[in-house]
Computed example of a mutant assay.
Amino acid sequence: MEVSNFILLALTGILAASVPLALVWTATGTHKYRKLAWVIAFFTFDLIVFGGFTRLTDSGLGCPDWPGCYGEANPFLAHEHIAAAEALMPTGPVTKVKAWIEMIHRFLAMGIGFLIIGLMVASWLEWRKARARGVRPTHGPALPTLLFLWVCVQGAFGAWTVTLKLQPVIVTLHLLFGLTLLALAVWLGGREDNLLAAPPAAPPTVLRKLRPLAWLSGAVLLVQLALGGWVSTNYATLACNDFPLCNGQIVPEMDWQHGFTLWRELGKTAAGHYLPFSALTAIHWVHRNFALVVVLVLGYTAWRAWRLPGLHGTARNLALVLIAQATTGIATVFLNFPLPIAVLHNAGAAGLVLLVTMLNYKVQYQLELALRSPRREAATSASHP
């Protein structure tokens, strides 16, 4: 890719970031750092949803190189190459529409990268000023720096997704790392919220019992996200065409070995043969049945947190999104994989990540707050006999 095209591509990413940055900068009131943190979380959520749309429309190779499109900064400049590829294969991986879907996804990703750079720079500048004054910085730079490093890793996997021709394990990791980026951004946003006003804390004994459940919910959700990504990247969504049975059976014929061999080409076994349908069935069946574990664990966690002060709203939203996610998953099979429902299912996964992360943060923060309060009261009583 020529330097001039690379510069134009970078300027496009800066332009994508400039609008939300301008809105944050010109917003009334203070706490612009907090607003920027939540803007990053919001656009990361959007990026994950649009990434799902990109994958579901088979647009992942709409531009078969990286970071540009046929070495150009946008599909307008690569129109001749795209038109030639589309003429050879009108329904193939490269069309004008698919090229734009893929590049819009990249533009949005670059914009988020520049927003994170802005957040990281602001946090380091604030840290240096606080250090010069001999006070503790309000916004620590560690988490924004981790966000920056993580988005760099995510960008690398985005490149490998294209250069390795949608290899399932790479695409699945790309999805998981994107969801992890969302979790980090939400954790940062939660921290900034609590710097403004501490939420009411539940009793420490209750929070201690809830914390392992919140952790377990995160672990169970991570496994299901990996399984769901594996279903999507292997195009196994309709490997079971009915529900609750799978192709008319409780336990259908399944090829576990080939289905869960990680390092292989899309649609192929590790030996290079075509992937048998029974392997796709195994992939789908595991994801479907593990969903029951997710519903039970996350549902029980939401129920336990429902009546606790400061956690009711998060628990309620978690329960609602969990129900919606189960509904869209079943509807995807019953309605023969309609694109809007599939995109909603992908958005539901991101929503669960957001809410489980927020629940974990609030439980951890409230527990620390509740444990600090008695010590503070004891210290005050000792100083005033």
Score class of each variant (00 low, 15 high):
Ala156Asp: 10
Pro340Asn: 13
Gln167Tyr: 12
Tyr70Leu: 09
Thr237Cys: 01
Gly62His: 06
Gly158Ala: 11
Met120Pro: 04
Ala226His: 02
Arg375Gly: 15
Ile7Ala: 15
Leu125Ala: 14
Val294Ile: 05
Phe177Cys: 11
Ala130Thr: 02
His284Phe: 01
Tyr361Cys: 09
Pro204Ala: 15
Ile40Met: 02
His284Lys: 05
Pro204Lys: 12
Arg34Asn: 09
Gly52Arg: 04
Val24His: 02
Pro141Ala: 08
Leu149Gln: 00
Leu221His: 04
Glu368Tyr: 12
Arg304Trp: 08
Ala132His: 07
Gly228Phe: 03
Leu61Glu: 14
Ala17Tyr: 08
Pro67Phe: 05
Gly259Glu: 02
Leu359Tyr: 07
Thr261Ser: 10
Ala156Arg: 11
Val186Cys: 01
Ala185Val: 01
Tyr300Trp: 15
Leu344Pro: 02
Leu207Asp: 05
Pro203Asp: 15
Leu308Phe: 09
Val24Trp: 04
Arg316Phe: 07
Pro67Trp: 05
Val169Trp: 14
Ala319Pro: 00
Pro200Val: 13
Asn346Gln: 14
His79Trp: 15
Arg211His: 12
Leu280Lys: 11
Val356Lys: 03
Gly60Pro: 03
Phe6Tyr: 14
Phe45Ser: 00
Glu126Leu: 02
Lys98Cys: 00
Val171Cys: 07
Phe177Trp: 13
Leu149Thr: 00
Ala202Phe: 01
Ser232Gly: 04
Val363His: 05
Arg128Gly: 09
Val363Leu: 07
Leu213Gly: 15
Leu36Arg: 00
Gly313Pro: 02
Phe45Pro: 00
Ala324Leu: 10
Ala370Tyr: 14
Val363Thr: 06
Cys240Asn: 06
Thr145Glu: 03
Ser217Leu: 02
Thr233Arg: 01
Thr261Asn: 07
His312Asp: 11
Asn289Gly: 07
Val151Met: 10
Ala99Thr: 01
His287Tyr: 08
Ala291Glu: 01
Leu216Ser: 08
Ser373Ile: 08
Leu335Tyr: 13
Tyr235His: 15
Ile323Gly: 14
Ala37Gly: 05
Thr30Gln: 13
Gly351Val: 03
Leu227Phe: 11
Gly111Gln: 03
Trp303Val: 06
Arg131Val: 00
Ala202Asp: 07
Ala10His: 10
Ala132Gln: 12
Ser381Asn: 13
His79Pro: 01
His79Gln: 15
Asn194Ala: 13
Gln325Pro: 01
Leu56Glu: 12
Gly111Cys: 04
Ala198Tyr: 11
Thr332Arg: 11
Trp285Ala: 00
Ala302Leu: 03
Val162Ile: 15
Phe277Thr: 10
Met103Pro: 02
Ala282Thr: 06
Phe260Cys: 01
Ile250His: 05
Gly329Val: 03
Phe148Ile: 00
Asn5Met: 14
Pro93Phe: 04
Leu213Trp: 15
Pro203Tyr: 13
Ser383Tyr: 14
Lys362Met: 10
Leu184Pro: 04
Ala84Thr: 05
Pro252Cys: 07
Glu368Asp: 14
Leu176Gln: 10
Gly348Thr: 03
Pro141Leu: 03
Leu175Arg: 02
Met358Gln: 15
Asn5Pro: 07
Trp100Asp: 06
Arg307Pro: 00
Ala156Glu: 12
Ile104Cys: 14
Ala282Cys: 08
Leu47Trp: 02
Glu72Ile: 00
Ile117Ala: 10
Leu225Arg: 04
Ala342Ser: 12
Gln364Phe: 13
Arg376Glu: 15
